[in-house]
Simulated scan of single mutants.
Amino acid sequence: MLSEQSTPVIRATLPLVGAAIGEITRLFYAKLFEDRPELLRHVFNRGNQASGEQQKALAGSIAAFAGMLLDHPETRPDSLLSRVSHKHASLGITSDQYKLVHRHLFAAIGDVLGDAVTEEVVAAWDEVYWLMANALIAAEARLYQDAGVPEGEVWQRMEIVERHEETPDAASFVLRRTDGAPAGSFRPGQYVSVRVELPDGAIQIRQYSLSCAPTDHRWRITVKRVRGGAGPEGEVSARLHEHARAGDLLTVSAPFGDLVLPEDDGPLLLVSAGVGVTPMLSMLHHLAVQERARRVIVVHADRAPVDHAHRDEQRRLVRELPDARLHLWYDEPRAGVPDASPGRVDVSGLRLPEGLTAYLCGPLPFMRAVRGDLLRRGLPAQAIHYEVFGPDLWLGGE
């Protein structure tokens, strides 16, 4: 909870800081990487830095956190904190790095806002920062403890034992531990980070959902190749597609992520687009093993049937569930898929039972559109959960 003396200061200065937050975060990252260039090469996503998406995500999280403290002083924005803490844990972020961030962030605030940054303003925003940072540090400590690893030491070497070409742009990799032990359990919907060394010596990290059953002795990830076009080519996805083969070793984190199924028998809506199908596959595998008579509505959208990764597997899993139904939409429908609809996903015609919990994974515009449709159908905001890979640019409406 924000203190009484800081609340009016934050309320008065939030518009000023919010208007300049983009410039502040750009300067912050410049200062941070000048001081610690290895962070850009070995921790942060260089593509997101180049596009500015990481700066937008940091700016949005700070402004959103401050706004939530003002609007809901009696509660803590746990949904925002949970996503960030899981992402940080998957990267091996440690508590001492928050002091480094604080130093460069507040130096950037002073440089950008100048004389407006009085001692009173610094003290108030310092309180906001450490309320957020200490909550994240505590959450990440619990995640490391649950994973059974020391702080930040989340990495293990795993061997690729199988590679499968799922679509022209998506390949799946089955992984096992090098010591022969079971890969370990996880909660359906979670992801792992994969750390890859690139030709220039940089080490880049990306997150991929575990798309197998949580009880499998091996893990599986599915990697969609990010091709150049509107944006840069994906460095890690291209490297894995071109070079990763059975017998190769990968550096993989412990599983993290808060897009996980609730421990009850309530009805579910699993909505995905593109490679966003992967966490939903893990959930379907889990439900099939449980053999529960649970109402499950599965919705998937893709460009065309040929681009639909794990299409046959998804169909099979839905058929195995006693009360599940699959709804498909393709931008370019082809013959042979008579049960698919053309164009954009439309949830208006779906029968949504009471007590429904929805899970979304896919491109951000897709999830925003579906979430808006569900809200208009009367589904409560707290019943809609989502997963964003990369910087979380969607911070509203939680």
Rank of each mutant, 00 (worst) to 15 (best):
H243I: 15
E165T: 08
L374D: 07
G180K: 07
A133T: 07
G362I: 03
R377C: 12
S95A: 15
L375V: 10
L210W: 03
V306Q: 15
E159Y: 00
D248P: 12
R163I: 01
V289K: 11
D331A: 14
R294V: 00
D96W: 10
L270N: 11
R227I: 13
A273D: 09
A246E: 07
R36W: 06
D78P: 01
P267R: 04
A335G: 12
A12P: 08
E332L: 06
A141G: 14
Q49M: 09
A383S: 14
F256V: 11
Y359W: 10
M280C: 07
G234T: 08
P333W: 03
R218I: 08
S341V: 05
R163E: 03
A369F: 01
V296K: 00
L393R: 09
S237I: 07
A309E: 05
Y330A: 02
L393S: 11
R319M: 15
Q145N: 13
P232T: 12
H300C: 06
V223I: 13
S3A: 12
G228E: 15
A89R: 01
V345Y: 00
P338G: 04
R187C: 08
Y29W: 06
A202R: 09
G52Q: 10
M283I: 03
L240N: 00
R103M: 15
V271W: 02
I21A: 13
I24H: 01
L198I: 12
R83Q: 06
G343N: 04
P15V: 09
R218K: 06
V275R: 08
L261C: 15
H42C: 09
G276A: 07
H310Y: 11
S51Y: 01
S209A: 08
G355K: 05
D216E: 11
G257C: 13
A19R: 05
V149R: 01
V121Q: 11
T25D: 04
A381Y: 07
R351N: 14
I205C: 02
E320I: 02
G201A: 02
A89M: 02
L131H: 12
L40M: 14
A19Q: 06
T251H: 14
I160Q: 00
A135M: 04
V149L: 04
G336D: 06
Q5I: 13
R218Y: 04
H308W: 04
E140Q: 14
Q97V: 09
G189T: 07
I384L: 08
Y98S: 09
G114N: 01
R225K: 09
G276L: 03
G397H: 04
D200A: 07
V128Y: 13
A238E: 08
L393Q: 05
A254Y: 10
T25P: 06
A116Q: 15
L352F: 15
